[in-house]
Protein backbone atom coordinates (compact mmCIF):
# COMPACT_ATOMS: atom_id res chain seq x y z
CA UNK A 1 0.00 0.00 0.00
CA UNK A 2 2.67 2.45 0.94
CA UNK A 3 4.58 2.18 -2.35
CA UNK A 4 1.56 3.40 -4.26
CA UNK A 5 2.03 6.97 -5.37
CA UNK A 6 -0.49 8.99 -3.50
CA UNK A 7 0.22 12.49 -4.56
CA UNK A 8 2.45 14.13 -7.14
CA UNK A 9 3.77 17.67 -6.95
CA UNK A 10 2.00 20.10 -9.25
CA UNK A 11 -1.20 18.12 -9.87
CA UNK A 12 -0.15 16.22 -13.03
CA UNK A 13 1.40 12.73 -12.83
CA UNK A 14 5.00 12.40 -13.92
CA UNK A 15 4.22 10.71 -17.24
CA UNK A 16 1.93 13.52 -18.23
CA UNK A 17 4.47 16.13 -17.21
CA UNK A 18 7.10 14.36 -19.24
CA UNK A 19 4.86 14.29 -22.28
CA UNK A 20 4.05 17.99 -21.94
CA UNK A 21 7.69 18.92 -21.34
CA UNK A 22 8.68 17.09 -24.50
CA UNK A 23 6.05 19.03 -26.41
CA UNK A 24 7.35 22.26 -24.87
CA UNK A 25 10.94 21.46 -25.81
CA UNK A 26 9.91 20.71 -29.35
CA UNK A 27 7.89 23.91 -29.47
CA UNK A 28 10.89 25.93 -28.29
CA UNK A 29 13.08 24.25 -30.89
CA UNK A 30 10.68 25.24 -33.69
CA UNK A 31 9.45 28.73 -32.74
CA UNK A 32 5.82 29.30 -33.64
CA UNK A 33 5.12 25.71 -34.67
CA UNK A 34 2.06 24.15 -33.06
CA UNK A 35 3.07 20.90 -31.38
CA UNK A 36 0.22 18.45 -30.78
CA UNK A 37 0.05 17.01 -27.27
CA UNK A 38 -2.26 14.69 -25.39
CA UNK A 39 -4.14 17.31 -23.44
CA UNK A 40 -5.62 15.99 -20.19
CA UNK A 41 -8.91 16.64 -18.51
CA UNK A 42 -8.37 19.33 -15.93
CA UNK A 43 -10.57 20.17 -12.95
CA UNK A 44 -12.00 23.14 -14.79
CA UNK A 45 -14.01 23.52 -17.98
CA UNK A 46 -12.46 24.05 -21.39
CA UNK A 47 -12.09 27.73 -22.07
CA UNK A 48 -10.98 28.42 -18.51
CA UNK A 49 -7.33 27.95 -19.24
CA UNK A 50 -6.84 24.19 -19.24
CA UNK A 51 -3.97 24.50 -21.72
CA UNK A 52 -2.20 27.18 -19.73
CA UNK A 53 -2.71 25.26 -16.48
CA UNK A 54 -1.18 22.11 -17.95
CA UNK A 55 1.86 24.00 -19.24
CA UNK A 56 2.30 25.75 -15.89
CA UNK A 57 1.88 22.50 -13.98
CA UNK A 58 4.49 20.82 -16.16
CA UNK A 59 7.15 23.48 -15.64
CA UNK A 60 6.49 24.70 -12.10
CA UNK A 61 8.93 23.81 -9.33
CA UNK A 62 8.82 24.38 -5.55
CA UNK A 63 11.04 27.47 -5.88
CA UNK A 64 8.87 29.19 -8.44
CA UNK A 65 6.80 32.26 -7.75
CA UNK A 66 3.55 32.29 -9.66
CA UNK A 67 1.47 35.19 -10.88
CA UNK A 68 -1.82 34.66 -12.70
CA UNK A 69 -3.62 37.35 -14.63
CA UNK A 70 -6.89 37.45 -16.47
CA UNK A 71 -7.19 40.31 -18.96
CA UNK A 72 -4.38 41.98 -17.07
CA UNK A 73 -6.11 41.76 -13.68
CA UNK A 74 -4.89 39.68 -10.74
CA UNK A 75 -8.23 39.76 -8.96
CA UNK A 76 -10.76 38.33 -11.39
CA UNK A 77 -12.39 34.90 -11.05
CA UNK A 78 -10.20 33.03 -13.49
CA UNK A 79 -6.97 34.45 -12.11
CA UNK A 80 -7.97 33.94 -8.49
CA UNK A 81 -9.06 30.33 -8.96
CA UNK A 82 -6.02 29.27 -10.97
CA UNK A 83 -3.74 30.93 -8.42
CA UNK A 84 -5.56 29.17 -5.59
CA UNK A 85 -5.35 25.91 -7.51
CA UNK A 86 -1.57 26.04 -7.71
CA UNK A 87 -1.25 27.14 -4.09
CA UNK A 88 -3.22 24.07 -3.18
CA UNK A 89 -1.62 21.46 -5.44
CA UNK A 90 1.96 22.76 -5.53
CA UNK A 91 2.16 24.92 -2.44
CA UNK A 92 4.17 27.49 -4.39
CA UNK A 93 4.62 31.13 -3.53
CA UNK A 94 2.29 33.43 -5.40
CA UNK A 95 2.54 37.11 -6.09
CA UNK A 96 0.77 39.82 -7.98
CA UNK A 97 3.97 41.73 -8.72
CA UNK A 98 5.17 41.13 -12.25
CA UNK A 99 8.83 41.62 -11.43
CA UNK A 100 8.81 39.11 -8.54
CA UNK A 101 7.20 36.30 -10.51
CA UNK A 102 9.14 33.54 -12.25
CA UNK A 103 6.09 32.11 -14.02
CA UNK A 104 3.24 34.31 -15.15
CA UNK A 105 0.17 32.57 -16.48
CA UNK A 106 -1.89 34.97 -18.52
CA UNK A 107 -5.21 35.14 -20.19
CA UNK A 108 -5.04 37.65 -23.03
CA UNK A 109 -2.57 40.27 -21.81
CA UNK A 110 1.16 40.78 -21.50
CA UNK A 111 2.07 42.71 -18.33
CA UNK A 112 3.10 46.34 -18.82
CA UNK A 113 6.25 45.86 -16.75
CA UNK A 114 9.00 44.67 -19.07
CA UNK A 115 9.70 40.98 -18.58
CA UNK A 116 13.24 39.91 -17.83
CA UNK A 117 15.43 36.96 -18.60
CA UNK A 118 14.47 33.90 -16.58
CA UNK A 119 10.79 34.72 -16.47
CA UNK A 120 8.28 32.52 -18.27
CA UNK A 121 5.01 33.80 -19.67
CA UNK A 122 2.36 31.09 -20.12
CA UNK A 123 -0.56 32.00 -22.36
CA UNK A 124 -3.98 30.40 -22.26
CA UNK A 125 -4.97 29.92 -25.89
CA UNK A 126 -8.51 29.24 -27.08
CA UNK A 127 -7.78 28.79 -30.83
CA UNK A 128 -4.15 28.21 -31.77
CA UNK A 129 -4.66 28.09 -35.53
CA UNK A 130 -4.39 31.58 -37.05
CA UNK A 131 -5.78 30.32 -40.36
CA UNK A 132 -8.82 28.61 -38.80
CA UNK A 133 -11.47 31.07 -39.90
CA UNK A 134 -9.99 31.40 -43.37
CA UNK A 135 -9.48 27.72 -44.04
CA UNK A 136 -11.54 25.39 -41.87
CA UNK A 137 -9.77 22.16 -42.90
CA UNK A 138 -7.06 21.31 -40.37
CA UNK A 139 -5.32 19.03 -42.89
CA UNK A 140 -5.08 21.96 -45.26
CA UNK A 141 -3.88 24.51 -42.69
CA UNK A 142 -1.13 22.15 -41.54
CA UNK A 143 -0.01 21.80 -45.13
CA UNK A 144 -0.08 25.57 -45.52
CA UNK A 145 2.15 25.94 -42.46
CA UNK A 146 4.48 23.24 -43.71
CA UNK A 147 4.84 24.82 -47.13
CA UNK A 148 4.83 28.38 -45.76
CA UNK A 149 1.78 29.34 -47.82
CA UNK A 150 0.57 32.37 -45.95
CA UNK A 151 -1.03 34.40 -48.72
CA UNK A 152 -4.42 33.74 -47.17
CA UNK A 153 -3.54 35.62 -44.00
CA UNK A 154 -3.00 38.73 -46.06
CA UNK A 155 -6.32 38.14 -47.82
CA UNK A 156 -7.93 38.62 -44.43
CA UNK A 157 -6.02 41.85 -43.85
CA UNK A 158 -6.88 42.98 -47.39
CA UNK A 159 -10.56 42.43 -46.64
CA UNK A 160 -10.25 44.51 -43.47
CA UNK A 161 -8.80 47.46 -45.36
CA UNK A 162 -11.25 47.10 -48.25
CA UNK A 163 -14.23 47.25 -45.90
CA UNK A 164 -13.01 49.46 -43.08
CA UNK A 165 -10.22 51.52 -44.58
CA UNK A 166 -7.72 50.11 -42.12
CA UNK A 167 -6.69 46.79 -40.62
CA UNK A 168 -9.50 46.44 -38.14
CA UNK A 169 -8.20 43.36 -36.35
CA UNK A 170 -7.48 44.49 -32.82
CA UNK A 171 -6.75 41.24 -30.99
CA UNK A 172 -5.24 37.87 -31.91
CA UNK A 173 -3.35 39.83 -34.52
CA UNK A 174 -1.29 37.35 -36.59
CA UNK A 175 2.49 37.46 -36.25
CA UNK A 176 5.37 35.80 -38.03
CA UNK A 177 7.81 34.14 -35.67
CA UNK A 178 11.52 33.94 -36.48
CA UNK A 179 10.74 34.62 -40.13
CA UNK A 180 8.99 31.30 -40.58
CA UNK A 181 5.72 30.32 -38.88
CA UNK A 182 2.65 32.51 -38.73
CA UNK A 183 1.28 32.32 -35.21
CA UNK A 184 -1.81 33.40 -33.35
CA UNK A 185 -0.58 35.26 -30.27
CA UNK A 186 -3.81 34.20 -28.44
CA UNK A 187 -6.46 36.90 -28.10
CA UNK A 188 -4.11 39.50 -26.64
CA UNK A 189 -4.80 43.03 -27.87
CA UNK A 190 -2.51 43.96 -30.73
CA UNK A 191 -1.18 46.60 -28.33
CA UNK A 192 0.87 43.78 -26.80
CA UNK A 193 2.32 42.45 -30.05
CA UNK A 194 5.46 44.62 -29.99
CA UNK A 195 6.22 43.32 -26.48
CA UNK A 196 6.61 39.82 -27.90
CA UNK A 197 9.32 40.90 -30.30
CA UNK A 198 12.75 39.90 -28.99
CA UNK A 199 11.29 39.49 -25.50
CA UNK A 200 13.79 38.46 -22.86
CA UNK A 201 11.28 36.09 -21.30
CA UNK A 202 10.33 32.66 -22.61
CA UNK A 203 6.78 32.61 -23.94
CA UNK A 204 4.78 29.38 -23.90
CA UNK A 205 1.31 28.93 -25.34
CA UNK A 206 -1.04 26.16 -24.26
CA UNK A 207 -4.33 25.32 -25.94
CA UNK A 208 -6.06 22.61 -23.90
CA UNK A 209 -9.16 21.97 -25.94
CA UNK A 210 -7.28 22.13 -29.23
CA UNK A 211 -4.40 20.06 -27.81
CA UNK A 212 -1.59 22.26 -29.08
CA UNK A 213 1.48 23.81 -27.48
CA UNK A 214 3.66 26.41 -29.14
CA UNK A 215 6.41 28.71 -27.99
CA UNK A 216 8.47 31.78 -28.64
CA UNK A 217 11.98 31.42 -27.19
CA UNK A 218 13.69 34.49 -25.69
CA UNK A 219 15.14 37.03 -28.13
CA UNK A 220 13.10 35.76 -31.08
CA UNK A 221 11.80 38.01 -33.82
CA UNK A 222 8.03 38.36 -33.70
CA UNK A 223 6.75 40.54 -36.52
CA UNK A 224 3.12 41.55 -36.96
CA UNK A 225 1.84 41.04 -40.50
CA UNK A 226 0.88 44.13 -42.46
CA UNK A 227 0.98 45.84 -45.84
CA UNK A 228 3.70 48.22 -46.97
CA UNK A 229 1.19 51.02 -47.36
CA UNK A 230 -0.86 50.02 -44.30
CA UNK A 231 1.76 49.33 -41.65
CA UNK A 232 0.96 47.64 -38.36
CA UNK A 233 -0.18 50.06 -35.67
CA UNK A 234 -1.05 49.55 -32.03
CA UNK A 235 -4.05 51.05 -30.30
CA UNK A 236 -3.67 54.53 -28.87
CA UNK A 237 -5.72 56.13 -26.12
CA UNK A 238 -6.74 59.78 -25.88
CA UNK A 239 -6.57 59.93 -22.10
CA UNK A 240 -4.23 58.50 -19.50
CA UNK A 241 -5.44 55.98 -16.90
CA UNK A 242 -8.10 57.61 -14.71
CA UNK A 243 -6.60 56.13 -11.53
CA UNK A 244 -2.85 56.26 -11.96
CA UNK A 245 -2.37 58.66 -14.86
CA UNK A 246 -0.27 56.18 -16.82
CA UNK A 247 0.18 56.82 -20.51
CA UNK A 248 1.14 54.38 -23.24
CA UNK A 249 -0.49 51.49 -21.41
CA UNK A 250 -3.49 49.41 -22.42
CA UNK A 251 -6.71 50.75 -20.89
CA UNK A 252 -10.05 49.10 -20.12
CA UNK A 253 -13.29 50.98 -20.42
CA UNK A 254 -15.41 50.91 -17.30
CA UNK A 255 -19.04 51.98 -17.54
CA UNK A 256 -19.96 54.02 -14.45
CA UNK A 257 -23.68 54.68 -14.78
CA UNK A 258 -26.51 54.50 -17.27
CA UNK A 259 -26.04 58.10 -18.34
CA UNK A 260 -23.01 57.54 -20.50
CA UNK A 261 -20.47 57.97 -17.71
CA UNK A 262 -17.31 55.97 -18.23
CA UNK A 263 -13.73 55.84 -17.21
CA UNK A 264 -10.61 54.32 -18.71
CA UNK A 265 -8.32 52.49 -16.34
CA UNK A 266 -5.20 50.36 -16.63
CA UNK A 267 -5.93 46.83 -17.69
CA UNK A 268 -2.80 45.72 -15.83
CA UNK A 269 -3.94 46.09 -12.20
CA UNK A 270 -0.52 45.39 -10.73
CA UNK A 271 1.07 48.14 -12.78
CA UNK A 272 -1.71 50.52 -11.78
CA UNK A 273 -1.42 49.79 -8.06
CA UNK A 274 2.33 50.05 -8.19
CA UNK A 275 2.13 53.46 -9.80
CA UNK A 276 -0.41 54.70 -7.27
CA UNK A 277 1.82 53.53 -4.42
CA UNK A 278 4.56 55.60 -5.93
CA UNK A 279 2.37 58.68 -5.81
CA UNK A 280 1.02 58.84 -9.35
CA UNK A 281 -2.61 59.83 -9.52
CA UNK A 282 -5.15 60.05 -12.29
CA UNK A 283 -8.02 62.48 -12.43
CA UNK A 284 -10.62 60.14 -10.91
CA UNK A 285 -8.51 58.65 -8.11
CA UNK A 286 -10.25 58.99 -4.75
CA UNK A 287 -8.17 61.14 -2.42
CA UNK A 288 -6.28 59.12 0.18
CA UNK A 289 -7.26 59.39 3.88
CA UNK A 290 -4.37 61.65 4.86
CA UNK A 291 -5.04 63.96 1.98
CA UNK A 292 -8.76 64.07 2.86
CA UNK A 293 -8.11 64.94 6.45
Amino acid sequence: MTDLATYNFGYLDEQTKRMIRRAILKAIAIPGYQVPFASREMPMPYGWGTGGVQVTAAIIGPQDVLKVIDQGADDTTNAVSIRAFFQKVANVAVTTHTKDATIIQTRHRIPEHKLAEGQILVYQVPIPEPLRFLEPRETETRKMHALEEYGLMHVKLYEDIAHNGRISKTYAYPVKVAGRYVMDPSPTPKFDNPKMHRSEALQLFGAGREKRIYAVPPYTDVVSLDFEDYPFEIQTFDKPCALCGAENVYLDEVVLDDKGGRMFVCSDTDNCEDRREHGHAGEMLAPTKEAAE
Binding site: E149, G151, H154, V155, Y158, I161, F227, E228, D229
Partner: peptide, 8 residues
Protein backbone atom coordinates in the same frame (compact mmCIF):
# COMPACT_ATOMS: atom_id res chain seq x y z
CA UNK B 1 -0.36 38.02 -51.94
CA UNK B 2 0.57 34.34 -52.04
CA UNK B 3 3.67 35.14 -54.07
CA UNK B 4 4.67 37.91 -51.71
CA UNK B 5 2.96 41.10 -52.86
CA UNK B 6 2.61 43.32 -49.81
CA UNK B 7 1.42 46.63 -51.15
CA UNK B 8 -2.32 47.06 -50.69
Amino acid sequence: MAVGDRHY
